[in-house]
Amino acid sequence: MDFALTDEQRMLAETARRIGEKFGLDYWRALDADKAFPSEIWQAICDAGLCGVAVPQQYGGSGLGMLELAICVENLCAGGGGVTLSQMFMLNPIFGGVTLARLANEEQKAEMLPKLVGGELMFAMGLTEPNAGSNTLEIQTFAAEDGDGWRLSGQKVWITAVPQAHKLLVIARTKTLAQSRGKTDGLSLFVIDREREGLTHQAIDKLGTRTLPSSFIYFDNVRVDPHELVGTLHGGFRQLLDVLNTERIVTTAGLVGTAELAARLAIDYAKERKVFGGQPIGGYQAIQFPLAESHIQAECARLMNYKAAALHDAGQPYGSEANMGKWLAGHAAGQATDRAIQTMGGMGYSKEYHAERLWRDARLFRIAPISEEMVLNFVAQHDLGMPRSY
């Protein structure tokens, strides 16, 4: 195995780190206070070509892989944004780019992918529902046949960046369970305009990731046209799984970047802070050991994530690696941000020193986009060969 980055990968990492640091900690603190969407940095990311890293070249992208995308996200997040910034990659290069590149027809790709790469189109994904949660097969949003199209009714919850999105990737049932050959049959994927009659949304007040709003979405007999179906009618479940596994890779990259950023803030503080007239507190093992532990966890998560991305790019199964990397990274970022606050003492609880925002934002990703418990269920069943436990 060769663990060295190529010259192109190093260049991508340096570009991403430079943009991340340009829009640094103070930029994100101000956005968090105002609950303002990070439009400026996203446009800078698109202008630098980083949004299109994994989009095919014929549609304006670079035609590279998930490994290169993970490297970009990791360095952008470490520059100041933390894991919240990785959510923008989930929305656009993943829910928009990966979905369209793999499943869309030529007309759909030509229409939407260049605009996504350039920052003209923003995407959101409507999957989670109040009564389904992690159990996608229990979703109830239904697209009933209506002439040559469909009528969409139902609701979604915890959908990110709905007010800013131009397009929504919506997962709905297109067969009743009575009509289906099992629960995995009869799910379909649609890409529809966010501005549409019968579609409304309502914001959710929340602890963290405040720069990216989360919403309920309500579909009340919303018209869906034939050209808005993406992929195979009734066959969307298997197609969706591959999209969700790439989402794991981007999430892990953002968490690894967060762990690095939080550790850097804690270390810089510990090198300067003195108490009781002695040496800087960074010289004490009580400070060093927890930071060293989170660093070890983050490095392991990074390597597992790179393995998942490399397997993806080689066309090999990568679901286990993507899930394990995400589990590890959630713990690493959780510990790194918590110990950054502890290292700084009272100042860690203040907004001035940034660690509290990183902690609030990182906490979400032990629950989403897949909970720790569901990762352990997956590993126990698929890697250890144990009976399904849920």
Rank of each mutant, 00 (worst) to 15 (best):
G20T: 06
A143P: 01
V375C: 01
E260I: 01
A203V: 13
L103Q: 02
T232R: 14
S215W: 01
W158E: 00
A203T: 14
N323I: 01
Q57E: 09
L229G: 07
I192Y: 00
K156N: 09
K351V: 09
K326Q: 13
E260F: 00
T6C: 12
K175G: 06
D2V: 12
W28T: 05
W158P: 02
W359C: 08
A78T: 02
G119V: 07
L113H: 01
R223M: 11
Y353D: 04
E247D: 11
Q342K: 14
E299A: 07
K156T: 02
R102F: 03
A101F: 04
I296V: 13
A253R: 03
D148W: 00
G24M: 08
T232G: 05
I94P: 02
A368V: 11
E373G: 12
L5V: 03
P213Y: 04
R366W: 04
G235I: 01
A36G: 07
K351Y: 13
G330R: 01
R210K: 15
L199F: 08
M386C: 02
G81M: 03
N105P: 04
V224S: 03
T15G: 13
R264A: 08
Y349A: 13
T200H: 08
A70W: 00
H382A: 05
K35L: 10
Q381E: 15
A336S: 10
L229R: 06
R302K: 15
E68G: 08
V250M: 02
E138K: 14
G236D: 07
D268R: 09
T99G: 08
I281A: 01
L91Q: 08
A33Q: 14
H382Q: 11
P114D: 05
D148C: 04
F89L: 05
V224Y: 02
M344T: 10
F289K: 14
L25V: 14
E299L: 10
T337L: 05
K167W: 11
F95T: 01
R196C: 10
E352G: 13
R264I: 00
M66Y: 06
G65C: 06
S371G: 08
E138G: 13
Q57D: 02
A314M: 15
S320A: 15
K167H: 12
Q43I: 00
M125Y: 05
T99N: 12
I249N: 00
A132M: 10
Q297R: 10
L240F: 07
T99A: 12
E247H: 03
R151V: 11
K271Y: 06
G126Y: 01
F37A: 08
G61M: 04
G126N: 06
Q239E: 15
E372C: 12
Q164E: 15
A4V: 12
Q316T: 11
I370K: 04
A333C: 11
K22G: 06
L177E: 15
F190C: 10
F190S: 05
I217F: 04
L127H: 03
E293F: 10
L168N: 02
R339M: 15
S62N: 09
P163T: 06
G346P: 03
F37D: 03
Q288F: 03
L229N: 06
W327G: 02
S153E: 04
A143F: 02
L91N: 09
L25D: 06
F23K: 00
K274M: 14
